[in-house]
Amino acid sequence: MEMVNIHIGQLLGNLTGDMSHMMTTIIPKDTLKWRIKLLESAAAYANSRLHAITAQIVAFSGKDKLLPSKNEAHRLSGLLKHCNIRVFEENGHAILLESGVNVLSTIKASQMYRHSSKFDIFRDFLPPSMTEFKTLPMEAWWFRVFMGAAMFSTMEDGKIVRGLAGIPDEGPVLIVGNHMLWGFDYFVLVSEFIREKKSVLHGLAHPEIFQLGVEYEHILMPCVDIMKLFGGIPVSGRNLFKLLERKSYALLYPGGAREVFHRKVCYLSSYFI
């Protein structure tokens, strides 16, 4: 990951604003002008070399008071090839030194971790770490209360039990259901499978969810990143058969995106293969 902040105009605006009087008092005026010219020269050189940068992530902080991180991130994302923006709204200037920033999660969600030049959604998938699971926003008590989810499964003798004991410990298993609450029930199911089965439940989602643009950086991108980290896969016949071939747990909502906006009781059926 590389983070570049070289928008000289806004930087100089910050330097010559509230701090101008203090700086000219401490540093001689001629020395200050000379240093600003050096900064302008360095920024011009850096801008001329942007084409050589291969960074695939531009991360910016929502509370960076020193540099215009947000504007610079949008500028760089338009200049660098194959570059994705990642937002850390609650962090400041020293983003990599602050809490709440998991660089590994960012690398995984942006598909930078891969064995070849092209990302393979099966081969390059890394299961979520314990840290990622414990810090999952959907693991918060208020989300669980809001969802009000209760898990039940049926044993081989027909007895209904609370939890996932009735689901095999090994796949392939295909779980079919209908959407509820815009698909946020997906996160509850995935969390429960990790908690009880110690396995990832791969949800098959609309392919467009994985191709969001910069305009969705604040609203949908964080949710999509979580979906990627916890096994979300673009829905297709090939991907479904690949999951079953790999003896995985797969979650499919046949109703698709249209069903997301219908308020219905959520039901699930499991098919053991």
Rank of each mutant, 00 (worst) to 15 (best):
I107M: 08
S99P: 00
E72Q: 11
S129W: 05
T154F: 01
G158M: 04
H206Y: 13
I209L: 15
Y271W: 11
V224K: 04
I107P: 00
P28E: 15
M1N: 07
R144A: 08
E2H: 13
V188T: 08
V188A: 11
L126T: 09
G213E: 12
N91H: 05
Y45C: 10
S105Q: 09
T106H: 01
R114H: 04
G13W: 11
G183N: 06
E90S: 15
T31S: 15
L79C: 06
W182R: 15
K198N: 12
D169Y: 05
I226L: 12
R258P: 06
F241C: 06
I121H: 09
L220P: 00
V190S: 03
P168G: 04
N239A: 09
N91V: 04
I175T: 04
L79T: 05
G166R: 01
N5I: 07
T135K: 15
D225A: 07
T25G: 07
L126C: 05
G255C: 13
A55R: 02
L268Y: 11
I209D: 07
L104H: 07
G148W: 01
V103P: 00
N14D: 10
K65R: 07
Y216V: 06
Y267N: 09
E89C: 08
Y249C: 01
V235W: 01
L126M: 10
R123W: 10
K197Q: 10
G232T: 00
E2P: 01
S117Y: 03
